Amino acid sequence: MATMKTVQIYTPGNVNVLTYEDVERPVLQKGEILVRVRAAGINPVDYVSRAHGLILSTGTSVLPYVVGWDVSGEVVGLGEGVTQFAVGDEVYGMPRFPHEAKAYSEYITAPVADLALKPRSLSHAEAAGIPLAGLTAWQSLFEVAHLQAGQTILITGGAGGVGHYAIQLAKWRGARVITTTSTRNVEFVRELGADVVIDYTRESLAEAVKDVDVVLDAIGEDVLRDSFKVVKRGGIVVSLPGHKGVKAVGEELAPQYGVTFVLTFVHTSGEHLAQMAELADAGQLRTHLDATFPLKDAGQAHTLSEGGHVRGKLALTVE
C-alpha cells in the first residue's frame, strides 16, 4: 500500500501526544481531489482539538485523530466527476471544516467546493495561512457586519491571525480602521493599513475610541466589555467564539448599549478563497508568517501558538 507521513493523536493532551508516523494514503471519492500538501496552516482551533481530542462538528472524541484544516498544495488526483481543477493545479483551502480534514499530512482528499486556486504571488506556506483566519475575517466583515466604505471599524488584536487579515480586508473595502495591539506590534499594524492604533499597554480603549460602526472582537473578556462602550447605538459587535464567556457577555451588554451582538462561526467557501486569492495577487492581501516548522515539528508550532503572542500566522512545511 502507498503510505505517507502524518501527525495524529491517539489520546488528548499536551504537545507530546502529537505523533509523526506513516499511515496509508487516503482514497479518492466522487467529487473530491487528491492534494499533495506542501504547507499546513496553524490555528488556535488546532491545539484545542489536540488537547481535547474532539471532532468539532460533533463534540465527540474519535481516535486516532489527525489535526489541522488549512492546506496549500498541488492537485495530484481527480475523483469521478471533477472538472473544476486539473492535475498540477496549485490549490489552497480549509476542507471539511468543522469535520476532520487531516491537514497535517503529506496527502489529503478534499471536496472541490472547499478549495480554490492558490494565489500565484504567495508561497505555499503563506497561502496556507489564509483559509481559516482569512475566511473568518472575510465572513465577519462582509457577511455578518456588512461593512461599507466610509464606516469606522474597531478590530481588536490586530496583529493576530484573524486581525491582520481583517485590517487589510477592511481597508480594501474602504473603511476607516482602528485596531488594538501591544507596543512591539504598533508599526506592524500600521504597515497593514490601520488608520488609528491603540497600544493597549499604554492607552485605555474606552477613553481613546468612540462612535465606531463595527467592532470585530478577537480577544474577548475585558476587551469585549470595553468594545461595547465605543460602538454607536445601532452598531454591531462581532465576536469570535474561541474565548470563554463571550456569548454571555455579549448577550448581557448588547441590549444595554443598543447594539447588535453576533457570535460568528467560520464556514468553508471556495468562492471566498478565490476572491481573496485575487486580492493577494493584486497586492492587497498578504500573509505575515511569524515562523514556519517542518511537519515533524508540529509540537513546537503548537507550543508557540499556545503562547498567544504570534504575529500573523504560523505554518508547517511538508516536503
Rank of each mutant, 00 (worst) to 15 (best):
V231E: 00
K210T: 13
Y257M: 04
T264L: 00
T264A: 14
V262R: 15
F228S: 04
I236H: 00
G235K: 00
V249E: 11
I219P: 01
G242A: 14
T268A: 09
A218V: 14
G270L: 02
K232R: 07
T264F: 08
V266Q: 03
D226A: 15
A282V: 07
T260R: 14
M276Y: 07
D226F: 06
K247W: 15
L279H: 05
E221C: 10
L263N: 10
K210H: 15
L240H: 04
G245P: 01
G270I: 05
L285N: 08
V223S: 12
Q275P: 08
V212W: 00
E251N: 14
A218W: 12
T260K: 11
P294T: 09
R225Q: 10
L289F: 10
V249Q: 10
V214Y: 02
H267Y: 15
L240C: 05
V214N: 01
D222P: 12
V215L: 01
D217N: 11
T292Q: 08
D226H: 13
F228I: 05
K247I: 12
A280K: 00
A277M: 00
L285G: 05
V249K: 10
G250L: 02
V249H: 09
R225P: 05
I219N: 05
F265A: 09
G270N: 00
L273G: 08
V246C: 07
S227A: 10
E271L: 14
D213E: 04
G283V: 06
A254P: 00
K210Y: 12
V230W: 04
G270W: 04
G234Y: 01
F265I: 12
V246F: 11
R286F: 11
R286P: 06
E271C: 09
H288T: 11
A254D: 06
V237D: 01
V249A: 12
A277R: 02
S269C: 03
E207I: 11
T264H: 13
Q256N: 11
E207G: 11
V212F: 04
V223I: 15
D281H: 03
A291S: 13
E221Y: 12
G245W: 06
V215P: 05
L224C: 05
H243A: 15
G270V: 03
Q284T: 09
P255D: 01
V230K: 02
A208E: 13
P241S: 02
Q275G: 10
G283K: 05
G270M: 03
E278S: 14
L273I: 04
P255G: 03
V212A: 00
A248Y: 07
S239A: 15
E252P: 07
